[in-house]
Design a protein around this nucleic acid. Structure first.
Lengths: 336, 336
DNA sequence: GGCTTCCTTGTAAGCGCTTACATTCCACGA
DNA sequence: TCGTGGAATGTAAGCGCTTACAAGGAAGCC
């Protein structure tokens, strides 16, 4: 008896047919209690566990959800995915993880793989991908949900926030404080609509106020990268009084670089972030930023996706963001 | 033609048998080039993708690896898992993620689930779990590998570092600087051998130096929790000159609390961390800590596990850690 | 008492794939 | 010319499970 027990072994041990065993496991109420008990005893005495592949093959459901994330090194994704996964686990689904590294082709590959593996649904980050991907998903009739972005117009349901509006609000507030020489340190925009939307939010706020567009420097995710981008920005436009960063990590780097250059934050230059990670309150000065409910978003995305998988239709859901005004942002002071 | 194409459809389209199609896909050299081409054309024109469940059912391999992680909210796991996953993805394996929330029963459940799903191997964090778990894995002949800890004596292969030794080194260094009133802010030790080993490393260093054991305060992972633990520690032992924290996040919290209490770091009290996360260099003063190669560890763990899955035996691997001496640690100054 | 009805259980047909084994076909040598 | 070996392909038997359908039996009704 070295091989793992099968349904048939259990059936034999309990003196019933395989159908009855299967019923005990899947819809216990269809089996009379005595029989059920006998079967369950056989199950546990044999240490039987159903073979998932076989079950998936016939049931055409894998109880598996796929997620394609740029990278979990980014804390916002790690947090969101954790929340997403917790909900899934509670509902007896498992999470199959793939990472795209912000690369669209890699993302499509990952999605294909997930589909071939019979994922019952997939979690995607942002909208920015070729239409083929959405067609592919539709063809395979795999429900998908987009998180970390929101757009009620899109055919695919999304759970997230409006990056453009959130950043617009932050920029508008800063402009009201008196800033007019504005720079942006953005995350890489290619294949990343979140980053683009944030930049656009700033530019729009500037336009609204009749100010000239901001210089944009792109930087990969990272503190050192934020610092380098800040340095470059100030070299190009030394009179900048406000640097809006695409996320808190870049902002932390920018602040460090500013201090290293002997600039005072916020007296010489104000610097803001996005996400409200823990570091926003750890660095000195604390980073003015936009709070995003990553955890709540992960949970909501999971709930919505499970709805879709269950055949119901899920609606897009806009989560609120919140301005966190902190010391790194103040009216322009030394310059003018 | 709404249902997804099967092997049989491809076979019909190409005018061959299903066996030939299967061979084209799995061992192309067993099929004559012309036939192969005809088959491949049929494959792509139909958009055929093999059904993974069916393949897994007969092949008894799922090309899937499971990982049970306490939580991805902790950056060290997020980073390590990301590296682990990248290697897997490159080798055409997928990662099935489960989280235990530091709970042993939950972890065992997750492992069972992973096993039922036919994971070809599993990644575990630390050694601290009931022997039954290891027996279970052995019974199911599922190779496992332990990461974030190292012990060459254990039957299960591990890839990681020696938490005890690493912390011992840091503590010994601090003691050499003159500290003798030592406190520890530890992560929760129950079911977490990494935390326990780190505490033990400190106590051992103190004992080696003939000093009395340190007070230990436990705290959940988090900045606020680190702050609270620090406050409690200083209330219990106000003459403490050195607080060794179980990780950088707790240390960041401790530093914040210390400053809030009007204490100077490191003049009044030295504070250290563990992991060398990015925040260690962001807070002021920068945190003296132990650098751990999380990324390298994730990669090495993946490589080792894939070896096991391929039937070879993997050896445990000890990764080096490195002391990062920074401003938060200095000789005791104000107190005696 | 016989018939209907409902409930419990069994029978067996696949799900889509891999692979051992059988078959076919061709080139070659005697 | 025919026999032979080997390469290419086909045939078909499952892998372990779910489920439509069939069968059997007890209970309720006239």
């Amino acid at each position: 008896m070295s091989r793992t027990p099968t349904l048939e072994d259990v059936a034999a041990a309990a003196g019933v047919s395989t159908a009855t065993v299967s019923r005990c496991l899947n819809s216990p109420d269809k089996v009379v209690p005595e029989t059920r008990q006998r079967v369950m005893e056989a199950v546990s005495s044999l240490g039987y566990a159903p073979n998932f592949s076989a079950r998936a093959l016939v049931a055409k459901r894998t109880q598996t959800i796929g997620a394609v994330i740029p990278t979990m090194e980014n804390a916002i994704f790690a947090e969101g995915v954790q929340a997403f996964q917790s909900v899934l686990q509670a509902e007896d689904f498992m999470l199959l993880i793939a990472s795209s590294g912000y690369d669209r082709a890699a993302e499509f590959d990952a999605i294909r793989t997930l589909a071939a593996r019979g994922a019952d649904g997939v979690l995607l980050v942002g909208f920015d991908r070729s239409p083929e991907v959405y067609e592919f998903l539709a063809t395979q009739s795999i429900p998908a949900i987009v998180a970390w972005a929101y757009d009620s117009e899109r055919p695919v349901a999304s759970v997230g926030f409006d990056n453009m509006l959130a950043m617009h609000a932050l920029a508008a507030h800063a402009i009201k404080l008196g800033h007019s020489k504005v720079g942006i340190v953005s995350g890489q925009q290619s294949g990343n609509d979140r980053a683009r939307d944030r930049v656009e939010g700033v530019q729009l706020a500037l336009k609204d106020a009749g100010l000239r567009a901001a210089i944009v420097i792109e930087a990969p995710y990272g503190i050192a990268q934020g610092a380098a981008a800040f340095e470059k920005l100030l070299k190009e436009a030394p009179d900048t009084t406000l640097v809006l960063c695409g996320n808190d990590v870049l902002a932390a780097g920018a602040i460090r670089q500013a201090l290293a250059q002997g600039l005072s934050v916020p007296d010489d230059v104000s610097i803001t972030g996005f996400d409200d990670l823990a570091i926003a309150q750890l660095v000195e000065p604390q980073i003015a930023t936009v709070r995003v409910p990553h955890r709540k978003m992960g949970e909501a995305a999971a709930a919505a996706l499970l709805e879709c998988v269950a055949g119901k239709s899920a609606e897009s859901q806009l989560l609120p963001t919140e301005l966190c005004l902190r010391a790194s942002l103040a009216p322009p002071f030394n310059k003018g």
